[in-house]
């Protein structure tokens, strides 16, 4: 079947060969440089991205390539509700890459930080090195895992799963090298910030409306994490 062969060719390009196979368009123009913008004003914290990513990338239970923590912040007019979609920042200076002892992780030509699964020894050094807690050793695959900007989709003309299903249209994915891209235009119109600037990692995930209290380690005075830790304590209710 012809279409099958044609499709497979493309799917292949999406996985192993993505580094060596720039897309037709970028061959002529400036190469693409992927980035993401999250307009926090639009995020409703529905976790569609979280679940879609889990399903699309077969991420095991208890692990996430992207997720949306929700915080209640104090303020002069009372408390308010803050959401913070998080994922790999696909940094310009990714601290996770140089520490890898086996050269299993690298940046693609489009700027996505990825892990070559067969090369990874899963020593966990990159997990330790990431200031964003964006990496983990995948319980199913047994190797270092992280957001790939859905490289298998973005390399075949599709959008990342989290972007496709973002209910608030808060996540904008695009080419940072293209001044006409939606992401660039939004960045030109709004002040944007990245997470943990003190690490000078050059993150390529930008936020509109990011409170400084969320930009670095969040001072948390209690909440869902405490609840989880105390969940098992007394037996309760009839089940």
């Amino acid at each position: 079947m012809n279409s099958r062969r044609e499709f497979l060719k493309l799917a292949m390009a999406g996985s192993t060969a993505a580094v060596a196979a720039p897309t037709a368009a970028s061959a002529q123009a400036k190469p693409k440089r992927w980035g993401m913008l999250v307009d926090l004003r639009k995020c409703i914290g529905c976790q569609a991205c979280t679940v879609a990513c889990t399903i699309e990338n077969d991420v095991p239970e208890g692990q996430h390539r992207t997720a949306v923590p929700v915080y209640e912040l104090d303020g002069p007019d009372g408390p308010s509700q803050a959401v913070l979609p998080r994922l790999c920042n696909h940094c310009d200076e990714p601290p996770c890459i140089p520490v890898c002892p086996v050269n299993a992780t690298f940046k693609t030509d489009e700027g996505a930080v990825v892990v070559e699964a067969e090369q990874c020894v899963a020593c966990g050094y990159c997990v330790q090195a990431c200031p964003y807690e964006a990496r983990f050793i995948n319980h199913k695959t047994g190797v270092a895992d992280k957001c790939t900007f859905c490289v298998h989709r973005t390399s075949v003309g599709l959008l990342p799963a989290c972007v496709e299903t973002c209910v608030g249209n808060a996540r904008v994915f695009g080419d940072l090298n293209d001044p006409e891209s939606d992401i660039r235009k939004l960045m030109a119109q709004h002040e944007t910030k990245g997470l943990r600037p003190e690490f000078k990692t050059g993150p390529n995930v930008y936020y509109i409306g990011l409170d400084d209290r969320l930009a670095s380690t969040v001072a948390v005075g209690g909440g869902a994490r405490d609840l989880r830790q105390g969940l098992e304590t007394p037996a309760h209710g009839e089940v």
Partner: peptide, 20 residues
């Protein structure tokens, strides 16, 4: 007052007791 996390995600320790 510090923030209250209403939704949060755990990250397990990647280096297990073996590393220690």
């Amino acid at each position: 007052m510090p923030a209250v996390d209403l939704m949060s995600f755990d990250h397990e320790a990647v280096w297990r007791p073996w590393a220690v």
